[in-house]
Each structure stands twice: as structure tokens, then as C-alpha cells.
């Protein structure tokens, strides 16, 4: 049974229909990436799940509980981090987390330990007495993540958690999210930075102009779009015995591009899995120095699926 289920979600702001019949499901423990350009309806969808917006029409449930009808129950079970969020400048990180621990009614005897645990998890122990306003943007994001973990929520709703961060802070957040994924948290994360989600998500949904244009695992989407996988290969005896021609003739290989120090092999992965390609190359007598499959090209998928429309 799906943990999160959104069925035909519609959100209107006056005459503007921001979300037009979006449906998706997230099984427990999955990381669902919500991709779309600015104004596509990502934040509106997340806000509905976070009980901040009442949908115009839909049935959205969390663990079978109707979100619109039971907002208070849902609030206890979710951790929401908005795309832009401020912090209380008059509190230290320690006080800030205690403040939210109290608001989430974490047992008083447990609060100290819980706060210490989340500070440890987000690597902010050394900043516990710093004023939250003095923290860098990346640290504030990590503090935001620490905040949403305080009450051990079942679902994390993270709206563009890495937006506006420098590369180091972005990598730190990504590693932290991987840690949360490994802890078995169900996460819905939105972003328009595509490769960020490629590393993290088990499923993705691509939304444009308020409509979900694709949903599924990355592989499913690539397969549906017949996208090609690129593998970079260095072969030391490439000139031996018409090797290049033989590689081009392998069933499943769409094209082979000669680059100064390598070959870029484009293949239909559904017809020729990576392991089989390697075996076939060995079979041809190739002495392989490097075999590097490129991460699936999400940007191509995104561009194929979307047309640049807004709601």
C-alpha cells in the first residue's frame, strides 16, 4: 500500500489553476523527487501535503489518513522545510531546536537527547550556542533539516532544500539526505537541479504547468523515452583487427563516437545491459583500461518531457 497517495490534485489561486489534476503515489521508505521548472506547481503540491493549502479538489492521504480532513494529525507526522525559510534571530541553535521540540511536544525528559542527536546528525554540535542568524546559509539549511527531524516524522517534505547554496553546502546537504534515505525515511523532495535528484531519488515525478508529465523510477522513465545510455570506454588495442567496426556492429549499440582518448558508446540499455556490453568487448579481445557509464541523462529526459510551459 502506498504511504502517500495524491489523487487528481487541483489547486487554484483565484482564476489561476496552479495544479491541474496531479496524481502520484509514494511507497514507504522511498525518496520521491519532484522536478519541474519554476511555477510548475511543485511548491503548491507540497504545501497541500504540508497542510498549508486547502486543495480545490483532490484526495490526498498519508498512511490512509485524509490530509485535508485531519490536518492536526498530519502535522505531527510530517516534517516540512519550505524553499525559503527564516530563522528566529534571537535564539541560539540549541534554543531554536528546543523551541521546536517543545512545539512538537517531544517529551520533556527526552528533549535534550533528541536535540543533541539531531545536532550530531547534521554535524552542527559545534554551533549549538551560535545565534541562528549568524549561521551560513548552508548551516541554516542543515539546522532546518535538524528541525524537521526532531519529532521523528514519517514523511519529510523538502521544498528545494539546496537552492541558493554554494557547491560545498549543496554536497553536504545531499550527503545528509542520503543518510536520511538510508535511515528509511520517506522523503518528497523538489528541485529544479536535475542531477541532484538523480543521485538521490528512487522515483521521480516531472511536473509542468501544473500537470504531471511523467512519474516512475528513473529507469522506467528513460525506457519510456527510449533514451540512450552513454558509456565512456578506453581500449588500449583499439586499432587491432578492426575492433571499432566490430564494436559498432554489436546488437544494442546505437552509435560509437571516437574521442581523442576514449570511445563514447551510446547503447539501448534495455536491449544491451552494461554487464553484457563489457562481456562482449572482452569477447572481441579488447583490452579495457577504463569503463565508465555516464549517469543517466536527466536533463535530456526533462527537455524531452517538458515544453517550457507555465501554469
Amino acid at each position: 500500500m502506498s504511504f502517500v497517495k495524491v489523487d487528481n490534485l487541483i489547486v487554484r489561486y483565484g482564476k489561476l489553476e496552479a495544479v491541474r489534476g496531479v496524481s502520484f503515489e509514494i511507497p514507504r521508505g522511498e525518496v520521491f523527487g519532484f522536478i519541474g521548472p519554476n511555477g510548475a506547481g511543485k511548491s503548491s503540491t507540497i504545501k497541500v501535503l504540508a497542510t498549508l493549502l486547502k486543495p480545490t479538489a483532490s484526495s490526498a492521504t498519508l498512511d490512509g489518513i485524509d490530509i485535508a480532513r485531519n490536518p492536526m494529525t498530519i502535522r505531527r507526522r510530517i516534517g516540512y522545510m519550505p524553499d525559503f525559510f527564516g530563522v528566529y534571530e534571537d535564539l541560539t541553535a540549541w534554543e531554536y531546536l528546543h523551541f521546536f521540540a517543545s512545539a512538537y511536544r517531544v517529551e520533556r525528559s527526552m528533549r535534550r537527547k533528541v536535540v543533541e542527536d539531531v545536532l550530531h546528525l547534521t554535524d552542527l554540535q559545534h554551533k549549538r550556542d551560535a545565534q541562528v542568524d549568524s549561521l551560513s546559509r548552508g548551516m541554516k539549511q542543515r539546522l532546518g533539516l535538524a528541525r524537521v527531524l526532531l519529532h521523528d516524522p514519517d514523511l519529510l517534505l523538502l521544498d528545494e532544500p539546496a537552492s541558493g547554496l554554494d557547491p560545498r553546502a549543496r554536497i553536504e546537504i545531499r550527503e545528509l539526505l542520503k543518510e536520511l534515505r538510508n535511515m528509511g525515511k520517506t522523503i518528497l523532495i523538489s528541485s529544479h537541479i536535475l542531477h541532484e535528484l538523480a543521485h538521490l531519488c528512487t522515483r521521480i515525478g516531472i511536473i509542468e504547468a501544473g500537470t504531471l508529465v511523467a512519474e516512475g523510477s528513473l529507469e522506467e522513465i528513460y525506457r519510456r523515452l527510449s533514451l540512450l545510455r552513454i558509456v565512456h570506454v578506453q581500449i588500449s588495442n583499439l586499432n587491432h583487427n578492426g575492433m571499432l567496426t566490430q564494436i559498432r556492429a554489436i546488437e544494442g549499440v546505437a552509435a560509437v563516437e571516437e574521442q581523442p582518448d576514449r570511445l563514447a558508446i551510446r547503447l539501448h540499455e534495455d536491449r544491451l545491459p552494461l554487464e553484457d556490453l563489457m562481456a562482449q568487448l572482452h569477447g572481441l579481445g579488447a583490452r579495457i583500461r577504463m569503463f565508465q557509464p555516464e549517469v543517466m541523462d536527466m536533463e535530456t529526459a526533462f527537455m524531452k518531457l517538458t515544453q517550457g510551459k507555465t501554469a
Binding site: L52, A68, R69, M72, E107, H151
Partner: peptide, 16 residues
């Protein structure tokens, strides 16, 4: 501008 909380009032201690 908040979704009405008719389900139950806040109260009781939550699991840690």
C-alpha cells in the same frame, strides 16, 4: 489562512 483543524485539538505528548 490555515487549513481548519477540526480533527483534534493539540495536546498530549508526542513520541520522541
Amino acid at each position: 489562512v490555515r487549513v481548519a483543524s477540526a480533527d483534534e485539538p493539540a495536546g498530549g505528548l508526542q513520541k520522541a
